[in-house]
C-alpha cells in the first residue's frame, strides 16, 4: 500500500537557486528561470524524475530517442559533470553557459578541445579524429574511400599538429581554431540570447519575487 502524499512540488534533485546560478553564469535570473522551463520539458520526456538522461537528451536533439550519435553522446558526457549518467539543472545551466554568446572564448575553446579529446588523454589523437570522421560519414550516409579519409586526416594533422608528434595538444588546438574560426561556430548558440522569449511561461512559475533582468 502506498503512503499518502500531500500535493508537494515535484522534486528536481539538482535544482539550484536561480539567483546563485545567474551569479555564476552569463545568464540573468529570468534567463535561468526560462532555462528551467526547457529543462522541465526535456527531463520529463521519458522518465519524469527531474533529471535529463541520455535518451531524453538525444530525443531533444533528434526528436528520436533511438538515434545513437557519437557527438550527442560526447556532449551529454561533458554536461554530466558529476558522472552520474544524468544531467541535473545546475550542470545544465553551467554547461549551456559555455555556449552563451557572451561566454569567454577561452571557455569555448576548452570545451571544444574536451569534446574531441574523447579518451581524456589531454591530446586529440589521430585515431580519435578518424573515429569521429567515420561516425560522421556513417551518420550522413556518405561514402568516402579509406584513402580519402586518410588524406583528410593527413591534411588536418599537417595543419594542426605543428610539432608533428602525431597528436594535437591544447596550445596547438588554440592556435588551429584561431586560424579556422568557423570551427568555433558550434560553440555559440544565438538562441541563448532570447531564451526568455522562447520560454515565456517562466514568468508564471517564477520562484524569485523580484525578477532581475
Amino acid at each position: 500500500m502506498g503512503c499518502f502524499q500531500s500535493k508537494t512540488r515535484k522534486q528536481f534533485p539538482g535544482h539550484e537557486n536561480p539567483v546563485i546560478l545567474a551569479s555564476q553564469t552569463a545568464f540573468s535570473v529570468s534567463e535561468v528561470e526560462a532555462l528551467f522551463e526547457l529543462f522541465k520539458s526535456i527531463s520529463s520526456s521519458v522518465i519524469d524524475d527531474g533529471l535529463i538522461n541520455k535518451e531524453e537528451f538525444q530525443l531533444a536533439i533528434f526528436k528520436n530517442r533511438k538515434k545513437e550519435n557519437l557527438f550527442a553522446n560526447r556532449i551529454f558526457d561533458l554536461f554530466d559533470v558529476k558522472r552520474k549518467g544524468v544531467i541535473d539543472f545546475g550542470d545544465f545551466v553551467r554547461s549551456l553557459n559555455v555556449f552563451h554568446p557572451n561566454a569567454p572564448q577561452e571557455d569555448k575553446i576548452d570545451f571544444s578541445f574536451k569534446l574531441y579529446d574523447m579518451d581524456g588523454t589531454g591530446y586529440i589523437e589521430r585515431q580519435e579524429v578518424k573515429q569521429m570522421l567515420i561516425a560522421l560519414l556513417s551518420e550522413s550516409e556518405m561514402r568516402l574511400a579509406d584513402e580519402t579519409v586518410e588524406t583528410i586526416l593527413d591534411k588536418t594533422f599537417l595543419e594542426a599538429d605543428v610539432n608533428e608528434d602525431g597528436k594535437i595538444d591544447k596550445s596547438e588546438w588554440q592556435n588551429f581554431v584561431s586560424r579556422n574560426p568557423s570551427l568555433m561556430k558550434i560553440m555559440t548558440l544565438p538562441y541563448l540570447r532570447d531564451i526568455t522569449t522562447t520560454f515565456p511561461s517562466f514568468v508564471f512559475n517564477s520562484e524569485v519575487d523580484e525578477i532581475a533582468t
Binding site: I61, Y116, L133, T156, L183, I186, I195
Partner: peptide
Amino acid sequence: RPVTMNAFELISKSQGLNLGCLFEK
C-alpha cells in the same frame, strides 16, 4: 569537396553537435 576541408570542419557539421535543436519545440 570534402578533401579540401580539414576533418574538424567536416565533424563540426554533425547534427549531433547542433545544440540549437534543443530549443526547437
